[in-house]
Amino acid sequence: MQRSPRDCPYREHQEASTISTFGAVRSLQRGLEVLQAINCNNGLRAAEVARIVGIPRPTAYRLLETLEGLGFVVRGPSEDAWRPTLQTKSLSSGFRDEDWVAQVAVPRMMKLGRKILWPLDLVTFHDYRMAIRESTHNISPFSVDHGMVGRELPVLETAGGRAHLAFVPDQERAQIIEGLRERLGSDAVDFHDDGPLDYILARTSELGVGFRIKGFNARTMSISAPIYSGERPIACLTMIWIGTALKFDEALRLHRDALISTAASISDDLARVAAEQSEE
């Protein structure tokens, strides 16, 4: 579903304020308006910024690139959308916890994606679905899917969903499974092409990654490693490959350790950022 960007409260404040007799530095004023617009929305394209701020699109693009160079915004690799970075915390409270995706996770994803060539998805659990937050499909020569960011996938039929279930605390897992039973029915929860749910979760814990061999998408297989904030997973990093090109056991041998290592590095980066913020 296409998201509509929100106008920000700062517009009313701007219109009501009195301009200094010395005159405003127009480029600075516009740059701050652009940054405030980005902070009010979870990702904006240059055209959307231009509409909200009321400036030409080339001007918006130039200001966004300037803010990127200063470290205040970053553009996602899979879409032409700009988001605030951790640097915005030094200016205001506009930074949201979810923006770790762009600044912390994406660089690690891109590095691994260029190495293994198979596409990667970063997925998070939301409302009994797994939402794709970022992806390297656009840089993968082996990708068979495009436009993945923003899609929602089933929890029980995907490697990322299975990894999330396997590694969350026991009480949280039980609550999620109960909620899925109410929505899908017991048979849809307990039995899958890859085996009973209990077996799948036990096997996931043993492997250290969620997995999908059969079902959901007959063309592909996948494995997924958890990303932690503290003691619980907040996202999963999933590698997808064409099943006829690479057998499951071979994919595990070749890529599981690198996937787990990258997910662990993202977790470490999150812990470092949290520590730095707590010291401020």
Rank of each mutant, 00 (worst) to 15 (best):
G69I: 08
G69R: 14
L70T: 03
G71N: 07
F72N: 01
F72L: 12
F72H: 04
V73C: 08
V73L: 03
G76N: 11
P77C: 10
P77T: 14
S78F: 12
E79D: 13
E79P: 13
D80P: 06
D80N: 15
D80L: 15
W82M: 11
W82F: 12
T85K: 01
T85F: 00
L86Y: 10
Q87T: 11
Q87N: 08
Q87L: 05
T88I: 02
T88S: 03
S90R: 15
L91Y: 06
L91S: 04
S92Y: 01
G94L: 06
F95W: 10
F95C: 06
R96H: 09
E98V: 14
E98L: 03
W100F: 10
V101M: 00
V101G: 00
V101Y: 03
A102H: 07
Q103M: 05
V104K: 08
R108G: 01
M109G: 09
M109E: 04
M110R: 14
M110A: 04
R114N: 08
I116H: 05
I116N: 00
I116A: 02
W118A: 02
P119D: 06
P119E: 05
V123C: 12
V123N: 06
V123A: 07
T124S: 08
T124L: 07
F125L: 15
D127V: 12
D127L: 15
Y128A: 05
R129K: 12
R129H: 10
R133D: 02
E134T: 13
S135H: 03
T136Q: 01
N138W: 12
I139N: 07
I139V: 06
P141K: 14
S143P: 01
S143V: 11
D145R: 15
H146C: 11
M148K: 12
M148V: 09
V149A: 15
V149M: 14
G150L: 13
G150I: 14
G150C: 15
R151E: 08
E152L: 14
L156H: 08
T158E: 03
T158N: 04
A159N: 06
A159G: 06
A159S: 04
G161S: 11
R162D: 02
A163W: 03
H164I: 15
H164F: 15
L165F: 05
P169W: 12
R173E: 00
A174N: 07
Q175F: 05
Q175K: 13
I177W: 05
E178Q: 10
E178A: 10
G179E: 00
R183G: 00
R183F: 04
G185K: 01
S186C: 05
A188Y: 05
A188M: 06
A188H: 09
V189R: 09
D190H: 09
F191C: 05
D194G: 02
L197A: 08
Y199M: 10
I200V: 12
L201F: 02
L201R: 12
A202V: 07
A202W: 09
R203H: 12
G208H: 11
V209M: 02
V209E: 03
G210K: 13
G210Q: 09
F211E: 01
R212E: 06
R212A: 07
I213C: 09
I213P: 00
K214V: 05
K214C: 10
G215E: 07
